[in-house]
Simulated scan of single mutants.
Amino acid sequence: MTLSENRDRPVLALIIRLGAIAALATMSALIKVAGEHHINLLEILFWRQFIALPIILLWLIPTTGVSALATSHPGKHARRAVYGLIGMMLNFGGVMLLPLAEATTMSFTAPIWAVILSMLLLKEKIGLYRWAAVIFGFAGVLIIAQPGGSHLPLVGAAVALAGAFMVALISIQIADLNKTEKPLTIVFWFATFSSVAMIFPLFFVFTKHSTFEWLLLLGIGISGTTGQILLTSALRFGKVASVIVMDYSALFWATIYGWLIWQTLPPASTWIGAPLIIAAGMVIAWREHFLARVGRRTRSS
């Protein structure tokens, strides 16, 4: 089977992407439970990243081998780790401060931030479709957050939105790294640099844990790393624009976990605002896929 034949399996790509989102949604639920058990955010960050290292090595040894981890760009990986740690801190903080469904919905604004960043940093021209998506997306945010009269803490909403902004910013970094590095190499060095960076703060926040709390931390590391590996694997069989629609299934998992663990369901404002944010993300993904296809045709002609 050729590489192109191996990649052209869109149904498998969608299934893998669904599994990735389920794993990451599980991680978010476990993070929220860990926060309720007063486990410090910095400690959660450390174990989330440190546990990833042996999992990645076990994945690589029987497949491509550890030689796949070689890199000639340690500086870029270090910068990615700095940005990544800030992003994880904000995203994990949003999960702890907000109901799970609302925190998940706020994360859907990452494509909207990406459009704004592409204009500011990459000097890309933004057309009518994407500007309309940005406006509709932020309208959805306002409906959910309801400044001045919401059930949501505005600090939590701001933290979650800042986390989505960091995801968009990091995506630009990763796009640059992907030109020279393999996806699992990027994940491994991110985990390595961030684990080393978190060792010193860990001494100040580490506390004794019950067996249940250790299982929570282990579950966060396993589910988070599994989600990252599955996200990478999905792109072997399908294109980003084809599989990204599955990311919105995270709202389903967040709603289920919220009901099962906390006996809460999102209010009407979330169900009104969330479709606007999701629709905005889908329009942006479709438009960027369309523009990329036009660009390829122009270059080939």
Rank of each mutant, 00 (worst) to 15 (best):
I61V: 15
S4F: 06
L30P: 01
L218K: 12
S72M: 03
G140Y: 11
I278P: 02
G65E: 12
I15W: 11
S171Q: 13
L215E: 08
L235A: 03
A114L: 15
A250G: 07
A280Q: 04
L202Q: 04
A158D: 03
T207K: 12
A158I: 12
R9A: 08
G238Q: 08
M1C: 05
F50D: 00
G281C: 12
F46V: 05
V95P: 02
S67Y: 06
G137V: 07
T270N: 14
I278M: 13
G35S: 03
I284G: 05
L291K: 10
L276K: 06
F108K: 08
A132W: 05
F92W: 05
M96D: 06
H37E: 15
E5N: 11
L12K: 12
V187I: 15
S194P: 04
A157H: 00
F200A: 15
I135R: 06
Y248N: 08
D176P: 00
M106I: 09
A160G: 03
L45T: 02
T264A: 10
T225A: 10
A241Y: 11
T211Y: 11
T270Y: 06
M282N: 08
H73C: 00
Q173P: 00
A114H: 13
I277Y: 10
M1H: 07
T105H: 00
I229C: 03
P10T: 08
F200N: 01
G93P: 01
G219K: 04
S107I: 11
S107N: 14
A78E: 02
P111H: 09
L235D: 10
L251G: 02
P147L: 09
W253I: 04
F190K: 02
L230S: 01
V294R: 10
Q173L: 05
F50A: 13
F165M: 12
V205M: 08
T232A: 15
D176I: 04
I174D: 01
G238Y: 03
A175L: 10
I172H: 08
G163A: 10
E43R: 12
L58M: 15
R17F: 06
H151E: 14
I256H: 09
F165Q: 03
K179T: 09
Y257I: 02
G281M: 12
R299M: 13
N40L: 00
Q49Y: 12
I21D: 01
A279S: 14
L42H: 00
A241H: 12
I21E: 04
L100T: 13
A175M: 13
A29Y: 02
H73Y: 06
A103D: 09
W259R: 00
E102S: 03
H209T: 02
T109Q: 11
A78C: 10
L12A: 13
A191G: 00
G219R: 07
R80W: 11
A78R: 06
I31K: 05
R48H: 06
R296E: 10
A160S: 14
I21C: 05
L14F: 03
T255D: 04
S242I: 09
I135S: 14
L12I: 10
M246L: 12
V294H: 05
G156L: 09
F200Y: 12
M1I: 09
Q263S: 15
A101R: 07
L161W: 11
S269G: 00
F108D: 06
I56F: 02
M96F: 02
V283E: 06
M198H: 04
I55S: 01
W47F: 15
L42R: 01
S223T: 14
L30Y: 01
A133P: 01
R7Y: 07
D8I: 00
D247F: 10
K125H: 11
K125G: 13
M88Q: 07
S242M: 11
